[in-house]
Nucleic acid binder design. Structure first.
Lengths: 336, 336
DNA sequence: CTCCCACCTGGCACCGGTTCCACAACGGCG
DNA sequence: CGCCGTTGTGGAACCGGTGCCAGGTGGGAG
């Protein structure tokens, strides 16, 4: 394991010149630079990032805190973040925060706070003012994905509006017996995504003069969750809705599978719409309001790096609303 | 941002005593330790991991290189790794290696090699001897998941045997027109998982005296991939197989959906078996050979940490075979 | 011709911990 | 009573880079 001093010696220059040559900062003649580079590659030299970050205070490492990995939306966001960071020469340190509050505290108090990371991206986690303040006190830029957080730049889709548009699509097809199968209001994710989508749903119904009472069933935010609730809800033809607005595509997919299993024809007997843009939704012809989680991740990195690269620019502590697009496929049709 | 010297001053002790008190190494009187701890928490002190790892040479950070995030098996492995690492007080730095060879080189040459990580877990990536040697030369313990790698401890299921058992299950039910829908042999993942499962398949057929010629179709390793190939393969009732061995549960799920769509009754007209233990497989009643990817990740961490914690123990450069368990559900039945 | 500036290089202090070593106090044992 | 081992503490040398500053060149402007 060779160190900078070895490289300098082999190249016949001083440590500082070797450092300049390799990092590209400051004046070095082309000839010297080449000699140093040669020496470095001959010795298989690589900088010690610990030493570098000790003196510069920068680690070129970004933390991502995220509640799930094995769910489509989160995995997509993560992939988007990872790809962008690596392209920018940054490492990505992953913290999965479960519902374990104790772990959450540990991650914040112990892991994030050590000067290991330059910045933090939090996905679908509603940071408390105290957590935000703590990270900001450390001078760490912070970007949130999935909902608003006071005082830091965040980005997300407009959940209320997206749900409203989805519901309106069903209403415009003449449906009035519409059921919303969404996430549990109590065990919801941090940003109240569930209740926001529910709000959009009821808002659309009310605007159309349709009764919202009893038009909601909760399900786990997964294909299995949608499937189970789908089976139970679609079983009785007398109480069966003519259209379902699923809180996410995974639920919608589960419902679709349940409907097929029960011999309920989609869209003739039942219309289904979801939110997300999941590839399986496309495969099944599920109408949806598509978002691009990968792009959200990439955008978050972009915001972060711009803060990191020129610290002068005051951070745009704004909430950025990302678009969703209605993709009408074959799971929704006019009410017969 | 307070540093150790501040804490020492506030506690009225020297830097070295403060360091000992906080790290728990060496002699410190209980009373002094308490004073130091108090001072530290009063100042909100946290160690600079850069400074610490500069002198100790340990970073308490493990790299994970993985080809996918948004696939069930990989996400499960990743979750298992993450949970175990955080419990052991280690950070996890994530590198997603796509098929981009250039990126792969960069990750190895540039990212992994900087003294940022203490160890590396490689998931479903067949490291070249050169890559192994490079990491070992840096003294970094290395564990592989998903297949054998010469010279380092690895763990995986026995793909050949698992596929053989799956096929045998179909054979034992009296099926002879069995199709294997698996991954593309050419575009396969690194460990030749696809060809190994194919080998197990043909081996079982041969042992039963069944012709293997033409009994294979390739699909993308995903639900959509299985669905598409399923549609094309199941369309013509005259050439339709009576049983399908899917290369993974995701393919099996896709085939199941395709079969339902075509009105083919499972298991009466078609038996389907997969490999993995995907939750949707369970939901659909898909018979499978279940593995526990999360446990594989946890086990890998265990191997790694034992190497890290007591460097004396020579690494057990062995391949550990993890079990798969036949879970017979409702997608397989005797040939009529 | 002088002055200034852009270019190039080396010396050295520093980042913030860890750890080795020296030293001191104290108790137990022969 | 002297010696030794255990315990407790402080001083100082690191770890391996970065970057400031000083010093030295050479060329163009005044």
């Amino acid at each position: 394991m060779s160190i900078l001093a070895d490289v300098a010696r082999l190249a016949g220059v001083s440590k500082s010149t070797a450092s300049r040559a390799l990092s590209g900062r400051g004046y070095v003649s082309d000839e010297t630079r080449m000699r140093v580079e040669e020496a470095a590659s001959e010795l298989g030299y690589v900088v010690s990032s610990a030493a570098a970050s000790l003196v510069t205070g920068r680690t070129r490492n970004v933390a991502v805190v995220i509640p799930y990995i094995n769910r489509w939306y989160f995995a997509e966001v993560l992939e988007g973040i990872e790809a962008s960071l690596i392209r920018g020469g940054y490492d990505l340190t992953l913290y999965r925060l479960s519902t374990d509050l104790d772990l959450r505290r540990r991650v914040f108090d112990y892991f994030l706070v050590r000067k290991r990371v330059d910045a933090v991206i939090s996905v679908a986690i509603d940071l408390s003012p105290h957590e935000v303040q703590m990270l900001q006190a450390l001078g760490k830029p912070l970007v949130g994905i999935g909902g608003r957080i006071e005082g830091i730049p965040t980005l997300s889709i407009d959940d209320v509006e997206t749900a409203r548009v989805a519901t309106e699509h069903l209403l415009s097809l003449g449906h009035t017996r519409i059921l919303h199968i969404g996430g549990d209001q109590h065990e919801q994710m941090d940003f109240r995504v569930h209740s926001q989508r529910y709000t959009g749903f009821t808002r659309a119904l009310r605007a159309a003069g349709v009764e919202a009472e009893g038009a909601f069933r909760s399900a786990e935010f997964s294909i299995e969750g949608g499937y189970q609730v789908g089976l139970s809800v679609l079983g009785d033809p007398r109480t069966r809705p003519t259209a379902i607005f699923a809180g996410c595509d995974e639920i919608g997919i589960g419902i679709t599978i349940a409907a097929r299993q029960l011999g309920i024809s989609v869209p003739h007997e039942l219309s289904i719409i979801g939110i997300d843009g999941h590839p399986i939704a496309e495969m099944l012809g599920l109408t949806t309001l598509a978002q691009r989680p990968g792009n959200q991740g990439a955008r978050a990195v972009e915001l972060l790096l711009s803060q990191l690269e020129h610290a002068d620019a005051t951070p745009p502590n704004e909430h950025e609303v990302l678009p969703t697009e209605l993709a009408v496929r074959t799971s929704t049709a006019a009410q017969r």
